[in-house]
Design a protein around this nucleic acid. Structure first.
Lengths: 126, 126
DNA sequence: CTCCCCCTTCGAGCGCGCTCGAAGTCAACC
DNA sequence: GGTTGACTTCGAGCGCGCTCGAAGGGGGAG
């Protein structure tokens, strides 16, 4: 139940470079365990946390905010409200961004409709 | 019905810097008209086109693909199918990206639920 | 013992999409 | 005539998030 960095990379879909980068940039909850020879060993909790990072990053949260969130979790008891607020703020950003993308997508779909009709008519005419 | 670059920026929500950048990077359909003194004058068609660029960029299309699309439009008759394919490809990317974001958002919402419950119970206990 | 591969750290580099600043022109207003 | 301010071009710079390469250390297979 502990993975090398290469295995963790495979599992999470990130690269080993990115995993090390997240760690040195303070996004991880703690320093990753090491084997006797100094190699990183990722456990289940590490992978869960990386999963959460992926959700946050994948919805556009800046690395700096992920770092802040990680710091709150590291603080432990008492920071729950701050964490909740951070997540709720982010949620609103994501919803706004989704609405905007869907709006833009609607315009693109209309454009696609125009070209589709145009080409269908051209085919009929030929 | 022709706007200065500052007015066009205001209308489109872009900056004057970005408008010039789009032009020199080949995203516009043609060179923008100039006043007697060499100042840019944006007309309605320019603004419509910038609106489309905004939709494409706002849904994550890379500048290089917008440039390709603009080149196809400039080519004129005969490029309609290529334009349609480009838009359809992009549409699929957007849909995939939306699905991923919504998926990630679900995980975040569950996390928010956990913290919300936690804090409600804490409040009851106090 | 050698080979090979995966790991380590550190710091530099990169790709994208702007973003900015310098230096200059011109028109309008006081 | 001087000042202000919006515009011009050009090229450099920046912020983000990785991404990569150099240089070196084990450790297991043959």
């Amino acid at each position: 139940m502990s993975l090398t960095i290469a295995e963790a990379a495979e599992q999470t879909g990130l690269t080993t470079h990115t995993l090390r980068y997240y760690e040195r940039d303070g996004l991880m909850l703690r320093e990753i365990d090491r084997s006797a020879t100094g190699h990183r060993r990722y456990n289940d909790r590490d992978l869960d946390w990386i999963g959460l990072i992926t959700c946050l990053r994948g919805t556009g949260m800046p690395v700096s905010d992920v770092r802040r969130y990680a710091a709150l979790v590291r603080e432990g008891d008492g920071s729950e409200l701050a964490r909740l607020e951070l997540l709720r703020d982010h949620r609103l950003h994501v919803l706004a961004q989704l609405a905007e993308v869907q709006n833009h997508l609607g315009a693109i779909d209309r454009k696609i409709g125009i070209y589709t009709d145009l080409l269908e008519n051209a085919q009929q005419a030929s």
